[in-house]
Design a protein around this nucleic acid. Structure first.
Lengths: 164, 164
DNA sequence: GATAATTGGTCAACATGGCTGACATAAAAC
DNA sequence: GTTTTATGTCAGCCATGTTGACCAATTATC
């Protein structure tokens, strides 16, 4: 209770608990993405394609620069996947009505179908984990994940949450 | 309260909540690894090196095949990072006493120092998030993460937890 | 003791998805 | 009319995953 002997059991448990978090985070993320990766591989796509499809599905009509800001990668990296997604008919770009420099991004029917399929498998994994852990645990889960974010990411996520 | 009209608000909230989890997972993992990535880049290393160092630090004397099983990658992939880690003096391999085919893995002092530094930054991020969220939340966090694991990973993690 | 299996390593080639740097075009803003 | 913005593109580099083939040392098995 009292924190005498800081090098004793309390500290040990603390470090153990932190390592447990670190490891769980690694394994959970790996497994969480694994199923989607398999589906993507069938269509000769990778995780990068998934991210583009996911966020365009989430924010139809978003600008390329918005997507870049969310993904936090270079436009050259994004370009590679975006152009194949457009070529293969998963995403369409429409010239912005107000600002005609913009190429607003939308999923096609095909894109929507793939997005739904991918989100379904990941969602099912989450749903199972949520169901098993209970509502209180889910709250805690989200709370801790929020706390792991960089401040910039946090404000981004907050902004998005509000606008929906 | 009662779940009449399954296509109504309850379902919508559910999908929203699942997407929220998916997104938080992505952003949190990215930010969680970001700091360590920077440190690693200074030493001309990448995440793969980190993983090897981390788990060898966690399980001194482990076999190469154990590390392969944990990381779930091919030995060719591991070999690339492992050989540079040995060459650069972060890891040493000692021939197994019982079975001399084995090359048991240990961190050197240098390896230990880097491991400590990397685990410190990630641990601090976790500690802050944990502190902010509270013990109950941490429990829920770990519970949900466990639920996201593949069954094979889960038994791996369980086995490890017991043996410590 | 010969043969088979295990542990670990290596070479080569390929894919994905980050990165930098340089440059181009169209449209908007000043 | 010049500058800035939004987007795209070419070229090349790096890290880290993959497959397939093959090898050496050691241990286990018949």
């Amino acid at each position: 209770m009292a924190d005498i002997k800081p090098s004793g059991k309390a500290l040990f448990l603390r470090e153990e608990e932190l390592r447990r978090g670190i490891e769980l985070m690694y394994f959970a993320y790996r497994d969480f993405t694994g199923e989607a990766d398999s589906i993507l591989a069938e269509q000769d796509m990778g995780r990068a394609h998934h991210r583009a499809i996911y966020f365009v599905g989430r924010h139809p009509g978003m600008r390329v620069s918005d997507l870049l800001a969310i993904l936090n990668i270079t436009k050259q990296s994004l370009s590679r996947v975006l152009s194949t997604l457009v070529k293969d008919g998963y995403i369409v770009q429409k010239t912005g009505a107000g600002d005609r420099r913009q190429r607003l991004l939308y999923l096609t029917e095909r894109g929507n179908a793939l997005e739904a399929r991918l989100t379904a498998v990941q969602g099912q994994r989450f749903a199972a984990a949520y169901r098993n852990a209970g509502a209180k645990a889910v709250e805690g889960f989200q709370h801790v994940l929020q706390g792991l974010l960089d401040v910039e990411t946090r404000s981004q996520v907050d902004r998005q949450d509000k606008s929906e």
